[in-house]
């Protein structure tokens, strides 16, 4: 019983950090490459006449709308998740509506505080548990059952569903966002900007149709910043992923 045994238990925290960082990065990179391989495979092997400029145009439109969030979400979640769970969370997805609640429940169950090592380990195990449940239910209920379900639904129902699925998502998502953000001023600015850009600016300058959403995002962010209420206190933001 020397003091060495106490300082060198079966596994050290430094070793844990090393393992999770290395394998977190390896598995996330693998997932990144696999997920990009699918559309690249379609572009390369199908003869659909897709050009590089079409992909660029689409990418720029998407990037203009989301590039702020690419950076803001990881920075926002880092203090809650800790380094190891970051590589899990941004691969498993649905962080705000599934992973964070799971992590919080686990921490509460064993009485571990967020920000401590105990809390970090509890969150990590909870996310592993959530991941297993999620992977199983996606493969089983969407992969197998869902595919079968779609094959037996009448074709005219499928056609109509496909036609109106996006408006049926966007209305609900917008209300959910507004309700969770609770930023009335930003919401009003966003709607005003969107209406002006889409129904005044774009009809006048049709070339702006493609980057329209990016323009709305930039204008809203700029206006919201300069028109912000100076007495608001900073509150955690709920994000989309």
């Amino acid at each position: 019983m020397t003091s060495r045994t106490a300082t060198a238990p079966s596994g050290s925290l430094a070793e844990f950090d090393r393992t999770t960082t290395r394998w977190g990065q390896i598995t996330m990179t693998a997932a990144l490459l696999l997920s990009l391989a699918a559309p690249i495979y379609l572009v390369l092997t199908t003869d659909l006449g897709i050009t590089g400029s079409m992909i660029w145009a689409a990418y720029l439109a998407v990037a203009a709308a989301f590039f702020v969030l690419w950076f803001v979400e990881p920075i926002t979640y880092f203090p809650v998740l800790g380094p190891a769970a970051m590589y899990q969370a941004f691969m498993i997805g649905n962080i705000a509506n599934k992973l964070l609640p799971s992590a919080l429940v686990a921490q509460a169950t064993i009485g571990a505080k967020a920000g401590t090592k105990r809390g970090e380990f509890a969150a990590l195990m909870a996310i592993c548990g959530a991941a297993m449940v999620h992977v199983t239910s996606m493969l089983l209920f969407v992969g197998v059952l869902g595919t079968y379900l779609v094959s037996i639904i009448p074709a005219d129902v499928v056609d109509v569903a496909r036609l109106y699925i996006f408006p049926s998502i966007i209305g609900a998502v917008l209300v959910q966002l507004i309700a969770t953000m609770r930023q009335a001023r930003v919401t009003v600015i966003a709607f005003a900007v969107a209406i002006v850009v889409l129904f005044v600016l774009v009809p006048a300058v049709p070339a702006l149709a493609k980057p329209a959403t990016g323009i709305v995002v930039l204008l809203t962010a700029t206006l919201a910043w300069f028109l912000r209420s100076r007495k608001d206190v900073a509150a955690p933001t709920t994000l989309v992923n």
Partner: peptide, 14 residues
């Protein structure tokens, strides 16, 4: 607090 909220609501409002 403001920029992410504005970016999000702006994108989805648009």
């Amino acid at each position: 607090m403001i920029v992410p909220a504005a970016a999000l609501i702006g994108a989805f409002a648009s």
